[in-house]
Design a binder for these strands. Structure first.
Lengths: 190, 190
DNA sequence: CCCCTATACTCAACAAATTGAATAGGTGCG
DNA sequence: CGCACCTATTCAATTTGTTGAGTATAGGGG
């Protein structure tokens, strides 16, 4: 049950509704924790039952009302306890890599090139959003100044990880596309 | 049910027993698909029932007998079909990043520095194993030669991704450690 | 000879994630 | 004025993943 902690960490950045969290998870957090909206709503429910978050309904005129969640003191305690426990090794699932692993047996390099192109596009989009977020966080300062002075380094360090991860993806996807294209055009070896 | 495909992809590199696959998943595959041995055994069972893999018992004198699994033609077909379907976006879960995200609220930078050190060690170990595997694959050739000529590019391209990912982790963990250490020692800003 | 480690699995119970559908008001486009 | 899309959420069913224990053989070290 670890999405709980990812949710608490997200709420530690400020209160939010389930819907807002779903977007936050898609924009800023997605490179280190993945979850669907359904999961978020369910776990927010449980967090509330356990007293780790509190909900209040915010009436809205031009759109449906929403329930805004705030982390409680007990929630912060739970986050601290979580911080002290040893971390599980990171878990990753990447279908594109699975397909590539089997590429030499399955043939059909075209479909793989297409898949790599899709990854390239996606990673460029994610990177662009991360860059925006970065500009907003830095707010004119240099990275070094920010890391030394600011009272908010956590989100910047995680953003750094996501940013570099997408940069890696872009470079890597380009290599994959080039390699597979080159081999398809001139397979005069063997 | 996607571990199925990761398993088939692993078996496309050659037959293996559940136990051997468990090790393969720990060494070469872990950066793009994570699974516990129990999961592997259960899903191999199902793959066998569905006729996507075949098992045969290999008698061993000096150790317990093992069941060695081979991908069937039907399994290869399933892999091909999987290759043609659009890929799900990669999913990732990283507790260290969650802890870092909340770092400014939880305080206790020491525990986080420790956690980052653990990540650094782990990534260095993984990288070392990847480098070994790389040498074995390249077998004297340059990367460029290999990518152009070899009849096995898939495993190399996935290895490349894992290698660069661990290199990124190492650089990043060092930045985290330095940043948190610097701030703990001289927090003379406000 | 005993204990530890490695090989090679199996079983059961539980927790978590995925999928698909459903509801319901508001906004914007042609 | 109809259709698609956005906000905002809920429900149910099924599939996956995790945890912990348990079985059995063999080799090596002290």
């Amino acid at each position: 049950m670890s999405l709980r902690h990812a949710l608490l960490a997200a709420l530690s950045q400020g209160e939010a509704s389930g819907y807002e969290l779903a977007k936050r998870f898609d924009v800023a957090v997605a490179d280190y924790w993945t979850a669907t909206p359904q999961q978020l709503y369910r776990d927010l429910e449980r967090l509330e039952q356990d007293g780790l978050v509190e909900a209040r309904v915010v009436e809205q005129t031009r759109r449906p009302n929403k329930r805004v969640f705030t982390m409680t003191e007990k929630g912060l305690e739970e986050l601290r306890a979580f911080g002290r426990r040893p971390s599980k090794p990171p878990a990753m699932r990447d279908e594109l890599l699975v397909k590539l692993q089997a590429a030499d047996r399955t043939g059909e390099p075209e479909t793989l090139i297409e898949a790599a192109r899709a990854r390239l596009t996606r990673s460029k989009e994610k990177l662009a959003r991360y860059e925006q977020l970065r500009e907003r966080l830095l707010d004119g300062r240099t990275e070094d100044d920010y890391l030394g002075d600011s009272d908010e380094v956590g989100p910047y360090l995680t953003l750094m990880a996501g940013r570099e991860y997408e940069q890696l993806n872009i470079r890597w996807a380009q290599t994959v596309i080039e390699t597979l294209t080159r081999r398809r055009q001139g397979p005069e070896a063997g």
